[in-house]
């Protein structure tokens, strides 16, 4: 099996797709770094000449005032307390929460690329993994070896997992290294709030707690990897089913973009939540954004994705082992 996987990795490297992916990331990261840099500058200008410590101190006083009011709900009080300790930590440790370091940029970048950019990059790598063998005719030589078909497909699947992991890793490394040139490399321990949940119109804050940024980032990259693997598996299935790489890319692209559009307009179409493409934004659950459709949660989205991924995996292996190759 190791030999089969090595073969697949060799072909992947020789097709130079991975280099293209790295180039794309290396081009986009400076672009976003600059955008982020501009935004921070603008915020600074709005604050005038005020020192950020003064602003933060004002915010703290503000929170304290609200806490001392007696008409406030218990749950809300708890949330405010957590927020207060976060703000105080910033002040005590001399961290400007509005001037991000490289880890913060990394986090924002990955949160924004999880539902479209990363799936697209994954798709570019995976789309022709099987279909190119079919359209190039090499599948005839590949499948007339003393190796069972499912083993050949499994070696390709493992190669897919390895390249997806590689893409996620390069996003992490490149966004950290490049943005650090501008923002500095510190900030791993900055405290962040997580644990928000949404129920109806309400933001539930009873499980909110503080985690250090490195832990937060680790969590988010875990989710990003999960989403990428599912998108990779679905693309892989299409690549088995279709001979034409262009068709694979077309279908995948259409679904991903449809997902990005649907998320903004399906709040009243409840069953749309079972589509894989409206469930891609897993990091939103960590940072506590509103869900596109009621009743969605991190667990729900991960389960929906798991079902899609598993179905894709099974369809790919069953058809590939049985199919007639013309």
């Amino acid at each position: 099996m190791i030999n089969l996987v090595r073969n697949e990795m060799l072909k992947l490297l020789r097709k130079k797709r991975l280099y293209v992916i790295i180039l794309i990331i290396a081009f986009l990261v400076p672009l976003f770094t600059y955008a982020q840099f501009k935004e921070i500058q603008e915020q600074r200008e709005k604050m005038g000449n005020q020192d950020w410590r003064t602003v933060l101190q004002q915010e703290i006083t503000d929170t304290q005032n609200r806490l001392s009011s007696s008409r406030i709900q218990d749950e809300w009080r708890k949330y405010l307390k957590i927020r207060l300790s976060q703000q105080q930590y910033y002040l005590e440790n001399d961290i400007d929460p509005r001037a991000p370091g490289a880890p913060t940029f990394m986090r924002i970048f990955v949160e924004n690329s999880i539902d479209l950019l990363l799936p697209l990059l994954v798709m570019v790598i995976v789309a022709d993994l099987v279909s190119s063998e079919a359209s190039g005719g090499t599948i005839k030589l590949l499948l007339t070896r003393p190796v069972k078909r499912w083993r050949i497909l499994l070696s390709k699947y493992i190669a897919m997992l390895m390249s997806v992991s590689f893409i996620v890793l390069s996003v992490a490394v490149l966004s950290y290294v490049i943005s650090g040139l501008v923002f500095g490399y510190g900030g791993w321990n900055m405290p962040l709030l997580t644990g928000f949940a949404v129920s109806g119109d309400e933001l539930l804050t009873d499980r909110v707690h503080i985690v250090p940024q490195w832990q937060y980032i680790l969590m988010e990259f875990g989710l990003v990897w999960y989403v990428s693997v599912i998108v990779g598996t679905l693309t892989f299935m299409l690549s088995v089913l279709l001979r034409s790489t262009a068709a694979v890319m077309g279908i995948m692209l259409a679904s991903l973009i449809a997902g990005a559009i649907l998320v903004n307009m399906v709040s009243s179409w409840e069953s749309a939540k079972y589509f894989f493409m409206v469930n891609l934004n897993l990091t939103n659950y960590v940072s506590g954004m509103a869900t596109p459709i009621e009743g969605m949660s991190l667990g729900f989205s991960m389960a929906v994705l798991a079902v899609w991924g598993l179905a894709g995996f099974i369809i790919a292996f069953v058809t590939f082992s049985k199919r007639d190759i013309y």
Binding site: N3, L4, N7, K11, R14, G136, T138, L141, R145, V147
Partner: peptide
């Protein structure tokens, strides 16, 4: 039909590729 091999690999690499499978 036609001898379709991997065009982006060398002849030697193609042979190595298939030899590794057995």
């Amino acid at each position: 039909e036609n001898p379709e091999l991997y065009p982006y690999l060398t002849g030697w690499e193609n042979l190595e590729h298939f030899a590794k499978m057995d």
